[in-house]
Design a binder for these strands. Structure first.
Lengths: 188, 188
DNA sequence: CGAACGATGTCAGTGACTGTCATCGACAGT
DNA sequence: ACTGTCGATGACAGTCACTGACATCGTTCG
């Protein structure tokens, strides 16, 4: 018999998403989130460094997936192909959870602070991809640009997938947009 | 004879950059910035919506320059070329002010909140470019991807230019990285 | 001259976030 | 069973970013 209800962190995440959805991010106080989770404000800040981060708990495991997939790509694969494989692996994670993902995204899009946080998560992802590519022996400007291109494609594909109500195939969208990016730069 | 010293806004910007450089962003309070500028904290918040924004006063005029340059590109220009022209126009603005630009960039890079703010400025830039391209009749996924690619190239070029101590030619860097991006996506 | 204006100051709040100490069940060693 | 350590939590006071309301006082316009 443990002293407290289990999964405090998960309860905080759920309470936060609910309240941000019901009243909006700014109109929700951390004390309210904690109360709904049966905890105190101080405990919230032991689990999350700030009020935004509670929405981004999953982003580190997503980044791990990206990095792992790129690492495991065959040595012969071109950088862009290694990274595209990672995008598709990530897409698979989203494809089944449209409900949760889109609710969360609606909250983020509605608030500038949360959009900022999302952008820095994507930048961190791009940095991790860059490092991973370098470890595969990819050269300097190439690694960085490949990672930036991949994240840009993922970002646009993800937004479109959400707009379409999650009915499209995210992996397919990624492939289409990558081809489009190729066409765009070809003229330069 | 006016009642107050002129250019309160500019004094706040300079005081902030100085203090952020001397003690770091987090160790500086808004009250200290205001005091160095000969004003009060409340007045700071009349000129800037928050403590970060004081470093980004110039970003709206940069965005205007981008948009204007793209608008004025010849109708026949491909989207990527129209946007590249804007990148080069912006580069010219930076080229002469390496000192100020690099000091400011050092402060931003050293702090996560400021990096977040920079990222959302770049995202805003990307959005403005997307809209401008659409107004030129560029289609949906193309406009967005062109803008994202352009901003990515600009970001990487800018960082390299700073790393090199401002001695390189930013316009030249942009052209090189654009070619590199083309090579990267070509394999996909 | 007097009224409206505009930039600033003053002051009292709210809420995010932090440091510190207390609490108390679980668990290990004796 | 006794006891000491540990880990998650609570309680509480404090700092600072940011906001709303109202006062001040040169400038400017009629």
């Amino acid at each position: 018999m443990s002293r407290w209800e289990p999964n405090a962190r998960g309860r905080l995440e759920q309470a936060a998403l609910e309240l941000y959805t019901e009243r909006g991010y700014e109109q929700t106080t951390v004390a309210e989130i904690a109360k709904r989770a049966g905890l105190t404000e101080r405990t919230f800040f032991r689990h999350f460094p700030d009020k935004r981060e509670v929405l981004f708990a999953g982003s580190s495991s997503l980044q791990d997936l990206f990095v792992r997939t790129v690492s495991e790509a065959p040595d012969a694969a071109a950088p862009i192909d290694a990274v595209t494989g990672a995008l598709e692996a990530a897409a698979a994670q989203f494809q089944d959870r449209f409900d949760h993902v889109s609710r969360r995204q609606a909250v983020i899009v509605a608030n500038a602070e949360l959009r900022e946080r999302e952008l820095i998560k994507l930048a961190s992802l791009s940095g991790a991809l860059t490092d991973t590519l370098r470890r595969r022996g990819v050269g300097e400007p190439t690694a960085r640009l490949t990672a930036e291109a991949a994240v840009a494609v993922f970002k646009v594909a993800f937004e479109r997938w959400i707009e379409e109500g999650g009915e499209g195939d995210l992996t397919h969208l990624i492939r289409e947009l990558l081809a489009e990016l190729k066409a765009v730069t070809a003229g330069a």
